[in-house]
Each structure stands twice: as structure tokens, then as C-alpha cells.
Simulated assay, not measured.
Amino acid sequence: MGAQELTLEQIAARAGEEAPVEINFRQNKLSKTYLAPHIDALRADLQQMRTAFDNSYKNSAEVRNNPRRTYPKGYCLEITKGVRDMLQNQMQNPTTPAMKALHDFCANGGIAKRVWGNLRNNYFQNAFQMGNLYVDVANDTVNPSKPQIEILPWAKSGFYGIRDYNMYGKLAEKYWGGQVYANRCLPELSVMFPILFVNRYGELEMHANYQTLLYRNMEQNFKLSELYLLNRKNRQQLLPEKYQVFLQENFGALVEPVGDNDLRAIFANARDTNLRFDISRCQPLLDIALEIGKKSKAQV
């Protein structure tokens, strides 16, 4: 297979990279054996790592140059990845009882991974799944008055993987503030990017660049985006005129939304030509999607 092609196995791996996994009997048993006796110690170790990350990151140029976010609000991804890196270093040479227990848990087949998804139907959130535990090291990134570290039984966490664009769109409006529109004016992008989003700052974004949902859509041969565009309530709702004009002038958008039959033909062509496996065709679509957001931000 050529260097510019993907395999279904690669797509599936990317689709599952941030997705929670089913908790089976083995994970419950391993969690009870290795993690349950060390919950308080694990929380204390994670708090030390979080404090160390805060001290190294909160005054960084990345934070100083972002006036829209006041640390730690909105930094759940950065914090979670930073603490994950510290955890991985600890796992190589664990020195505390909790880290040794976590090391043994993983060595015996326990699942410990970063996850991204829907938290309590209110937030997008990055966290960790450790066996049957939900572990959030960025619990204060929406409400800074909350404890930084939260550890809960997974069944009580209210955390769910995001598996369709309908839920994604609803949560985007609720969490980020703004308005979601079905992408029917840029049909060549619609198979991969079915959502247009006008954020709270009045900027237009080609949404759903998030890896988990993007690759899950590709894994299912664009069925998720097709279902969203054909079945969404008010799917023919037009963008406000200034955004429509912006897309027409800068990206060749259609004057009128593409109809259902033409849209089905676009999806059929994407499948017939194996678009999902062709990096040389997918990458330009991603580049255009990103460019829409950049150019819109520059003009607002």
C-alpha cells in the first residue's frame, strides 16, 4: 500500500485512541486488586503532578498570549496531556505506593488511557480511564473553585464517548456557546466536516476536527456525517448572510444549499473512490477546514 494511503486498521486505531473502553470483569478485578486500596494515595500523587504542571505551564507564552482563556479555564487538554507525560515517566521507575500499584495494574493488563468525550451532557472533557475508575486531573477547568483532582467509579462519572454528530453539535452549542449549522454550502467538505459553527465571538469554524469523531466517521465510511446532514432537524437552515457571503467569496461556497439527492451522490462518490483511505485527498480537505477558521478569525 502506498505511502499516501491509510488502512482501515489505522483509521480504527485513531478512532479509538481517545474513546473509553468497555469495563469487563477483568478490568473490575484488576481495579479492585491494584487500584482500590490506593485511591487516596493516587489522588495525592496526581495532585503533586498537577501542581508541578501548573507551576511550569501557567506562566508560559502559550497561556500569556491567549487572552480568551484565563488559566486554568479551558485548558483541560493541555493539563491532562501534561500530567499524562508525568505519569508515563513515573511508570518507568515508580517510587510511591500508588505509582507502583498503577504500574502493576498496567503490567497485568489494566487499561489506563486518556479519554475525551461528553461529561454529564454539559461539557467536553479530557480525563483518564483507569480500569473502572474515572480520573480527572483537570476538574477545575470549567469552574476553578472545584477540586483539581476528581476520582470516581466510572459508572458514577457521567462520562460518555461521543459517537455521533448530533450529540456533538448539541454539546458544542451548550459548552462553547454559539450556533451549529449543517454544512450544505461546501458539499465537497461535507463528507468529513458536516458541521459549521459560529462561535460566541462571531467567528465561523468548520467544526468536528476532533480526532475521535473525525476518524470514527471515516471508520464508518462517512455514515455518521451522512446521517447528520440528511436527518438533522432544520437541516436546510441557512447560515446568516454575512457568513454565507464570506464562504462564497473565499471558498467558492454554493449560493443555495445542496439538495438531498445531490448530497447522497457526493457521499456515494466518496465511498466508490475510497476517499477515506486516500491521504492525498483527505489532507487538502482538512487544510481548507482549518483555513476557514483562520480566515474568519482574522476578519472578525
Results as ranks from 00 to 15, higher is better:
Ala3Asn: 14
Gln4Val: 06
Gln4Thr: 07
Leu6Asp: 08
Thr7Ala: 13
Leu8Asp: 13
Ile11Gln: 08
Ile11Ser: 10
Ala13Gly: 06
Arg14Thr: 15
Glu17Leu: 14
Val21Cys: 10
Val21Tyr: 12
Arg26Ala: 15
Gln27Met: 14
Asn28Glu: 15
Lys29Val: 14
Asp40Met: 13
Ala44Phe: 01
Leu46Ile: 08
Leu46Ala: 07
Leu46His: 06
Gln47Cys: 04
Met49Asn: 00
Arg50Lys: 15
Thr51Phe: 02
Asn55Ile: 01
Asn55Cys: 01
Ser56Leu: 12
Asn59Glu: 15
Arg64Val: 15
Asn65Ala: 10
Thr70Trp: 00
Cys76Trp: 04
Cys76Ile: 04
Leu77Val: 06
Lys81His: 11
Met86Asp: 13
Met86Thr: 11
Leu87Thr: 03
Asn93His: 07
Met99Thr: 06
His103Glu: 05
Asp104Asn: 12
Gly110Ile: 09
Ala112Ser: 13
Ala112Arg: 07
Lys113Glu: 11
Trp116Phe: 15
Gly117Val: 02
Arg120Gly: 00
Asn122Leu: 12
Asn126Lys: 00
Phe128Ile: 01
Met130Trp: 14
Gly131Pro: 07
Gly131Glu: 02
Tyr134Gln: 12
Val135Phe: 06
Asp136Phe: 04
Ala138Cys: 07
Val142Lys: 06
Asn143Val: 08
Pro144His: 01
Ser145Phe: 02
Ile151Pro: 00
Pro153Trp: 04
Ile162His: 10
Ile162Val: 15
Arg163Val: 14
Arg163Gly: 14
Asp164Ile: 08
Tyr168Arg: 07
Gly169Lys: 02
Lys174Asn: 08
Tyr175Lys: 09
Gly178Val: 02
Glu188Pro: 02
Val191Phe: 09
Pro194His: 01
Pro194Ser: 00
Ile195Cys: 02
Val198His: 00
Tyr201Val: 02
Leu204Ser: 06
Ala208Asn: 10
Thr212Arg: 10
Arg216Glu: 15
Gln220Pro: 00
Leu227Met: 07
Leu227Cys: 07
Tyr228Pro: 05
Leu229Ala: 09
Arg232Met: 12
Asn234Arg: 11
Arg235Pro: 15
Tyr243Gln: 06
Gln244His: 11
Leu247Trp: 04
Gln248Met: 12
Phe251Gln: 00
Phe251His: 03
Gly252Arg: 02
Ala253Gly: 05
Ala253Pro: 09
Ala253Lys: 01
Leu254Val: 03
Glu256Lys: 10
Gly259Leu: 08
Gly259Val: 09
Asp260Asn: 11
Asp260Arg: 01
Leu263Ile: 08
Arg264Asn: 13
Arg264Phe: 04
Phe267Ile: 02
Asp272Cys: 03
Leu275Arg: 03
Arg276Tyr: 05
Arg281Lys: 14
Gln283Lys: 09
Leu286Ile: 04
Ile288Val: 13
Ala289Ser: 14
Leu290Arg: 10
Glu291Asp: 12
Ser296Arg: 02
Lys297Glu: 14
Gln299Gly: 09
Gln299Leu: 05
Val300Lys: 04
